[in-house]
Every structure is written in structure tokens, then in C-alpha cells.
């Protein structure tokens, strides 16, 4: 899933997803046009369109004929649940692997997390 250098259209798709997740792009808000993206990133508009198509296929954007692309209702929640499902595999597993490789016992990681939790509760 996460290549070091993923295709540019996927990077654009990821950026838009990130903006939806953080709320920078609200549901029912219009997304910049393919041409605006193409000009901004200096890429062929067909490449930018590919990113949009991917997001439409995933139900995160929808097209209003003659107007443009908009964020689908429920897009944020869908992304959040997708990311939650992948959280342990994508984020925690690599951390555990790194901790093993450099010799940090999991116990120590857990203690750190517990301390962190304590700070947040305070």
C-alpha cells in the first residue's frame, strides 16, 4: 500500500483524503478542479483526473454535472473507519518491528504509552 514513491495521482488522492479527514475539506464542499490541480502540480490533467476518478470510485467524491466535484456526505466517517481498521497493521506493526530491531522491549513501549495516557488524562 505505501510505496516510497507512489504514483502522483495516488499522492493527490491521498492528499484529498487527508484534507477530508482533518476537516479542511467539508462534506458537500467543492473540490478544486482537475485543471487547477494539473496547473498547481504541473501534471497532465488526465493524471489529475485519475486521482479524482479513484475518489469517486471509493464514494468519497461525487460529480455534479457541469459544476464540478464535491465531497460526498459521510466521506469523513468512511475514511475514519477505514483508517481505524488499518491502524494496527499500518502504524503499530511497523513500530513494533522497529522496536525489536533496535532492542527496545515492548514492555518499555507499553510503559511509555501508559505514561502518555496518564498525561492526557490529567
Amino acid at each position: 500500500m505505501f510505496d516510497d514513491r507512489s504514483p502522483i495521482y495516488r499522492q493527490i488522492a491521498e492528499q484529498i483524503k487527508q484534507a477530508i479527514l482533518t476537516g479542511d475539506l467539508q462534506e458537500e464542499e467543492q473540490v478544486m478542479s482537475t485543471n487547477q490541480y494539473a496547473a498547481f502540480y504541473r501534471i497532465n490533467p488526465a493524471t489529475a483526473a485519475k486521482a479524482f476518478q479513484e475518489l469517486v470510485d471509493e464514494g468519497l467524491l461525487y460529480k455534479r454535472r457541469g459544476i464540478g466535484m464535491f465531497v460526498s456526505p459521510g466521506a469523513r466517517e468512511r475514511l475514519r473507519s477505514q483508517r481505524r481498521e488499518r491502524f494496527f497493521a499500518d502504524v503499530v506493526e511497523p513500530m513494533v518491528a522497529e522496536a525489536r530491531a533496535i532492542g527496545i522491549p515492548l514492555r518499555e513501549v507499553i510503559q511509555w504509552l501508559e505514561q502518555r495516557e496518564g498525561e492526557e488524562e490529567r
Binding site: 485543471n35 494539473a38 496547473a39 504541473r42 497532465n44 490533467p45
Partner: peptide, 13 residues
């Protein structure tokens, strides 16, 4: 060269 790329893209669009 970058000015050329920008002009090319914009005019193409």
C-alpha cells in the same frame, strides 16, 4: 523551461 511547461499545460487546458 518551467515557464514553458506552465504555458504548455495552461494553453493545452
Amino acid at each position: 523551461r518551467y515557464a514553458f511547461y506552465d504555458e504548455l499545460l495552461n494553453d493545452f487546458m
